[in-house]
């Protein structure tokens, strides 16, 4: 277990556009917006060199894609919530770091590549996070995709590679993980003023997860990731990966001060804004029973072994 960290603090926040486009429609959306605003100030005052964004709404297939366009610019519209309005953006990306991260990922056995194309469709989650947390581009950012087929070992290694790149460049980062807690939305249009978590079960799981976050038990959450995926995640991808990446990037331990700035419903899904700051204290004494992976070996070819 390492406590050395290039991370000043970590943020977990939801991908939905309501806090950006329509905070006035529901008090909860407004609470989320206030939490973003609070964190915006804390990031500005943190002395961070870079904001590192891992977004679950940017799926990749060919390895792990990393945004490297120095000034990506477009006007984005969400597939579901297009009626809430458009999201014009222009971000400042640390291309030098993006390339470093790609090389660090390759050194750990991952297939990785940067993307730097005019008009590349940056995802809703990344746009919401960067627009609200870093609206004036005071700090350069880097955005990392979430490979739809990757599982634990690959994601853990991807997180470690982020730390490698930060160490190589001597940069201090604020990491931002863009993901819902429970991600089951209502499948019909609702009156935003009547928004709520989709079910009591989702709400209870979310609140249990928030207890872990509040206690700074990030590595414990990482170990619980498969359970979380089975209980409150729509099975769109192979696994619930954001806490794997976050824990690996932030040091794989439970030594954090956790703060829940907001927890609200976003069209039925669980939207929480959380800050985790590295500290000296530790909570929990779980026996971690999954391998700690340093290098990604690729598929094990289980199907091919023993075949006639």
């Amino acid at each position: 277990m390492s406590t050395k960290s290039n991370i000043l603090f970590g943020i977990y926040c939801p991908p939905h556009p309501q806090p950006l486009l329509a905070p006035e429609l529901n008090q909860g959306y407004g609470n989320l917006r206030s939490a973003y605003d609070t964190l915006k100030t804390r990031i500005e005052e943190s002395g961070a060199d870079i904001i590192l964004v891992y977004s679950t709404t940017w799926p990749s297939i060919v390895g792990h894609q990393i945004q490297a366009h120095p000034e990506p610019e477009w006007t984005h519209v969400d597939d579901d919530f297009h009626f809430l309005g458009s999201m014009p953006y222009k971000f400042k990306i640390d291309s030098d770091f993006s390339n470093e991260y790609m090389e660090a990922a390759k050194k750990r056995g991952l297939h990785s590549r940067t993307v730097a194309y005019d008009g590349f469709p940056i995802d809703t989650g990344s746009i919401v996070a960067l627009s609200l947390l870093n609206p004036d581009n005071k700090i350069p950012a880097c955005i990392i995709s979430s490979n739809m087929y990757s599982n634990r070992s690959e994601t853990i290694v991807l997180g470690k590679a982020a730390n490698d790149a930060l160490s190589t460049q001597g940069k201090k980062a604020v990491v931002v993980v863009v993901a819902s807690l429970s991600n089951r939305m209502f499948t019909e249009h609702i009156n935003p003023s009547e928004d709520r978590i989709h079910s009591p079960k989702d709400d209870e799981w979310n609140r249990k997860i928030l207890e872990f976050f509040k206690d700074g038990r990030l590595e414990d959450l990482s170990q619980l990731s498969r359970d979380i995926h089975g209980q409150i995640r729509i099975q769109k991808v192979a696994a619930y990966k954001p806490v794997w990446w976050m824990a690996a990037t932030m040091g794989q331990h439970n030594n954090y001060d956790g703060e829940i700035l907001a927890y609200e419903a976003l069209h039925g899904s669980g939207g929480a804004i959380i800050q985790l700051t590295p500290s000296d204290g530790s909570v929990g004494d779980k026996e971690f029973d999954e391998d700690d992976v340093e290098y990604y070996q690729g598929d094990r070819n289980v199907l091919g072994q023993g075949a006639l």
């Binding site: 799926p59 005019d118 590349f120 469709p121 995802d123």
Partner: peptide, 13 residues
């Protein structure tokens, strides 16, 4: 407009 493939931007713009 311009469509850039999010998965294969190297081949589709």
């Amino acid at each position: 407009s311009l469509s850039v493939d999010p998965i294969f931007p190297n081949i589709f713009r």
